[in-house]
């Protein structure tokens, strides 16, 4: 589904991603963990080209997105992204947040987009908030709307960048619940998170990144119980 080869990313002098190669299969849930500043966000952002790639290649669903002449906007509809800070549009209602890209990018008729949006709101359990503005929602509700909004584009892959890190503890569960449900439906997902419980339960594979490299990748049980590398052990001993 996604094949990353020798990905490098530099910001000026600093090399943030040094040589990342990774294959992500269809319907797989890959959880990315690692210390702050290790390049996890940058890696995700390269996957939908919010960040330009310095070197290496990324192939998604048979298409090399790092080749020149790729329609970036079309690619991005196929790769959904959920941010730590939700990034809902505050001047639009919940319903409009979801319909806006469906109408402007996918060119659906308004009423069709609204039907689709209502289905998605039902799925994330927020049907009654359709006409509310984001400001009036709790963090957990905002993030569920953001997930619904990304799903509106019917992406092939969903990227999550610390989706629960900005939430009060009591709201983490509702968001992870929606993500778990998505995984069960067979969505291909790449999730950066500090929620080791989620990684263990939902993840098919856990990738440990440090200092711009993938240090180790294994099924969660193996990685958590028998980490091979010293750096992985050191990191796990801090977070587990």
């Amino acid at each position: 589904m996604i094949s990353v080869k020798h990905l490098r990313k530099t910001f000026g002098e600093t090399e943030v991603l040094k040589d990342i190669s990774m294959d992500i299969h269809s319907q797989e849930v890959v959880v990315v963990i690692g210390p702050s500043g290790s390049g996890k966000s940058t890696f995700l952002r390269c996957l939908n080209l919010i960040e330009s790639v310095t070197d290496g290649s990324i192939v998604i669903d048979g298409q090399e997105i790092t080749a020149s002449g790729v329609n970036v906007n079309t690619l991005r509809t196929e790769v959904g992204m959920v941010f730590q800070q939700f990034n809902l549009f505050p001047h639009k209602t919940v319903l409009e947040n979801i319909t806006l890209p469906i109408v402007t990018v996918r060119k659906w008729k308004k009423h069709q987009a609204e039907e689709k949006a209502m289905d998605l709101l039902q799925k994330v359990g927020l049907l009654e908030k359709a006409s509310a503005y984001p400001d009036s929602l709790s963090g957990g509700q905002k993030q569920r709307v953001a997930i619904a909004r990304a799903l509106g584009m019917e992406p092939k892959v969903m990227l999550f960048d610390e989706p629960t890190s900005a939430l009060d503890p009591e709201m983490v569960g509702e968001v992870l619940g929606v993500m778990k449900q998505l995984a069960e439906e067979g969505m291909t997902m790449v999730v950066v998170t500090h929620e080791m419980g989620f990684a263990r339960e939902v993840g098919d594979r856990v990738v440990f990144m440090d200092d711009g490299y993938v240090v180790e990748e294994k099924p969660p049980k193996e990685l958590f119980e028998k980490p091979e590398h010293e750096r992985t052990k050191a990191f796990l001993s801090k977070v587990l």
Binding site: N48, I50, N73, T74, R76, T77, V79, G80, M81, F83, Q85, N87, L88, F89, L100, P101, T104, V105, A146, R149, A150, G152, M153
Partner: peptide, 23 residues
């Protein structure tokens, strides 16, 4: 306007004009 607004809109596939006009 927070950078995340444009990023989120772009990540949904909206082009520059759409991001400017709608967001």
């Amino acid at each position: 306007i927070d950078k995340g607004q444009a990023e989120a809109a772009h990540s949904l596939g909206m082009n520059k004009v759409q991001v400017m006009w709608h967001v």
